[in-house]
Amino acid sequence: GTEDLKEEAKKALKKGDKERAKRALKKAGLSEDQIKKFIKEVL
């Protein structure tokens, strides 16, 4: 589900894998702006 994808994105970001995080967030249905915001909040 969406929460799982967001968790996956957080883990990817902590490993420095932004591309993987972006893919997971796109799958979760987030827009580009939401993805940028999510990444900023996590990092």
Rank of each mutant, 00 (worst) to 15 (best):
L25S: 00
V42F: 15
E7N: 10
K11A: 13
K11F: 03
E3P: 08
L30F: 13
E32N: 09
K14Q: 13
I39W: 06
G16R: 03
K22T: 12
K36Q: 13
D33A: 11
I35T: 04
A21K: 00
F38H: 04
K6T: 07
G16E: 02
K14P: 01
K36P: 06
K15N: 14
D33E: 13
K15A: 15
D17W: 07
V42A: 11
E7R: 10
K37C: 09
E3T: 11
V42C: 10
K40D: 15
Q34W: 04
L13R: 01
A9L: 05
K26V: 13
E8V: 09
D33F: 04
E8L: 12
K22W: 12
K26I: 14
K15Q: 14
E41V: 06
E41P: 01
E3W: 03
K40T: 13
E3R: 09
K36V: 12
K18R: 13
K11W: 04
A12I: 04
K11N: 12
E8F: 10
E32T: 07
K18I: 15
A28I: 08
D4C: 13
L25D: 00
I39S: 01
A21E: 00
V42N: 09
E41I: 09
E41C: 10
K6M: 15
A9H: 01
D17R: 03
I39Q: 02
D4T: 11
G1Q: 12
E7P: 01
E7S: 08
F38C: 05
K26N: 07
A12Y: 12
R20Y: 10
R20G: 15
L5K: 04
E32S: 08
R20N: 10
S31Q: 04
E3K: 10
L25N: 00
L5F: 10
F38M: 06
D17S: 03
F38D: 02
K36C: 12
E7I: 09
F38A: 05
E32Y: 08
A9Y: 03
E7L: 11
G1N: 14
L13Y: 03
A12L: 12
L43G: 06
A9F: 04
D33M: 07
G1F: 14
E19N: 08
D33N: 08
L5D: 04
